[in-house]
Nucleic acid binder design. Structure first.
Lengths: 212, 212
DNA sequence: CGATAATTTGACCGATTGGTAAAAGCTTAC
DNA sequence: GTAAGCTTTTACCAATCGGTCAAATTATCG
């Protein structure tokens, strides 16, 4: 007659940790591919290799899975921007930010699509995170960039739109992967496309922001 | 005892045209906001101000609405790229392509999100269009850009990734609108953001592609 | 071992889903 | 006007949805 999530013992069971991990993995697969509304608990349970009631023993509702999944993924997702260093050399910082974001698009496309789906559909579950922590982080880094521009280290430009453009160009390779592959065609769509993209984007941003 | 869509008279009724138009409008609202799987026929019927069976009299299935909606929207969506002129001056062509795409993100965000949702979820309904007509169009324009680069009119760069980056940066303002607004905050998120974006993107691409 | 707590299952629920059938109501051309 | 064809509605269906419940099973610990 136990209450879900071990009300009596307080600490988490080994089984709990394992199962919750499997559920998060499965939920990332399903939510990133179909969005929140398009996903069903059954699909997640199937992907996690367990029955629906069993899954609901660990997470009370579909929304609970989604919310916790986003929470856990969001912090790592913002890591590259957080690593953006005010003390570094502008060129090197921008170049490595692009590199990191592109690597994330290549190595964690599900995470990218999870957010893309969410934001695309109006961000009903993460609007607070956007207005709060995200905005604060971007405000801070925008100030850094503005400082570089004032000091003549990079061209004068709107730092917010610069950040947006780095986000969009890099995440494009995760979110619109099918389209990118379709347009590039069989021969060019191999893993080399990320190297090509990196080369192009570095040229674009570094030359585009060079002082003239 | 009539069969849907006027099997006997062949030509379309006035009522048919009006109702199908209303359904397309409603479907664009709903599909663009929630994706295919997340949308329901009831929602579309509601938005179109008619009953579900009435809507299904004009379109046999949910898929049929979606397919025809995408067909009708796709050609106008590719118009700016089609207008890309090989004979024009490279700088002017690129600048006006960015302008047009940005205007479309501002004026037709639903269309942008319709495709974004579709591609994001693996493009199950438009993969053929991507591999066929879209790829052909991009191949053609990529060749134009390559010619400009060879002639030294713009910097050497991968034309495909250039096109991808223009798509992603401009469509970002439609697809990720909520995020853009949230990050910019109340004061900066007015309609002026499109002018700011245009200025930034023109600077980025024109300086980034200038021969040096 | 035995008991207590944690986990899993199968059977089930009401609401919503995409879609159908048939008849009633409405237009239009003659 | 009237008949043929077009449109709309009402009532309905089977499947799927998110979620519950109680009982059965398994793990843990003294």
């Amino acid at each position: 007659m136990a209450v879900p999530r071990a009300a009596k013992t307080q600490r988490r069971t080994r089984i709990q940790e394992e199962k919750e991990e499997r559920i998060f993995e499965a939920a990332l697969d399903v939510f990133s591919a179909q969005g929140f509304r398009g996903s069903t608990i059954d699909q997640i349970a199937d992907a996690a290799g367990m029955s629906k009631p069993n899954l609901l023993y660990y997470f009370r509702t579909k929304e609970a899975i989604h919310r916790q999944l986003i929470d856990r993924v969001l912090s790592t997702w913002l890591e590259p921007l957080r690593a953006f260093d005010a003390e570094g050399r502008p060129e090197a910082e921008i170049r490595s930010y692009i590199r990191r974001k592109l690597e994330m698009a290549r190595d964690f496309p599900r995470e990218s699509r999870l957010f893309a789906n969410e934001v695309l559909q109006g961000a009903p579950h993460i609007e607070d995170e956007l207005r709060g922590p995200l905005k604060e982080l971007v405000d801070e880094k925008a100030e850094v960039i503005r400082g570089w521009a004032r000091a003549g280290k990079i061209a004068k430009c709107d730092p917010y739109h610069l950040i947006f453009s780095i986000w969009s160009t890099t995440q494009h390779y995760a979110d619109f992967d099918v389209q990118v592959r379709a347009v590039l065609g069989q021969e060019q769509a191999g893993e080399g496309r990320f190297e090509d993209a990196a080369r192009f984007l570095e040229q674009l941003f570094l030359d585009g922001l060079r002082v003239r």
